[in-house]
């Protein structure tokens, strides 16, 4: 076991990990941040997406030791300081961008990463960017609509289908 230190949601944290401890395991079991979900555990589904130094990564496919010293943001870090839902989260609620909610933490984190890179994405941009996030409930339409709405674009013409 070795000690790893990083910043998670703005807070300096540390914990004992094995070499094989995944970032997702460290977050969930080491820090109790269970908002990061592990779906497939094979880097296909994207439920475990978090930001490492501002970039979206699949936390089930990164070792905690490999991101020692990094700044990590999880879904728990996406709310506003007063505890209300952040912009992307609120858009998912407003546009019914979730049903069971399992994929939602990863969807929100990927959407936030997209908007940081591309503040006004087209519908095609959103769909392309979310290729690595799988949702088995919604059929994606309302997720795409929520992301476009979070970017401040008018979505009244986007069909829910």
């Amino acid at each position: 076991m070795t000690k790893v230190t990083m910043t998670v949601n703005g807070r300096a944290v540390s914990g004992e990990v094995e070499g094989r401890t995944l970032l997702s395991t460290f977050l969930r079991e080491g820090l109790g941040l269970t908002g990061t979900h592990v779906g497939c555990d094979t880097s296909q589904c994207g439920a475990c997406v978090v930001h490492v130094d501002g970039k979206a990564v699949k936390s089930c496919t990164v070792f905690a030791s490999d991101v020692a010293g990094a700044a990590v943001t999880t879904i728990e870090g996406m709310a506003n300081p007063d505890g209300s839902l952040g912009r992307v989260q609120q858009a998912f609620q407003d546009h019914h961008g979730l049903q069971c909610g399992f994929c939602t933490p990863g969807m929100v984190m990927s959407a936030a990463a997209l908007l940081a890179e591309n503040p006004k994405p087209s519908e095609a941009d959103v769909r392309h960017y979310l290729e690595g996030n799988i949702c088995r409930c919604t059929g994606y339409h309302n997720i795409v609509k929520a992301v476009l709405a979070a970017s401040g674009q008018d979505v009244s013409g986007v069909a829910a289908e």
């Binding site: 880097s43 994207g46 997406v49 490492v52 970039k55 979206a56 990564v57 699949k58 496919t61 990164v62 990927s110 990463a113 997209l114 960017y129 290729e131 690595g132 996030n133």
Partner: peptide, 9 residues
């Protein structure tokens, strides 16, 4: 290649 999260790693 892959998806955005894969491309970041």
């Amino acid at each position: 290649i892959g998806d955005p999260a894969v491309r970041n790693r």
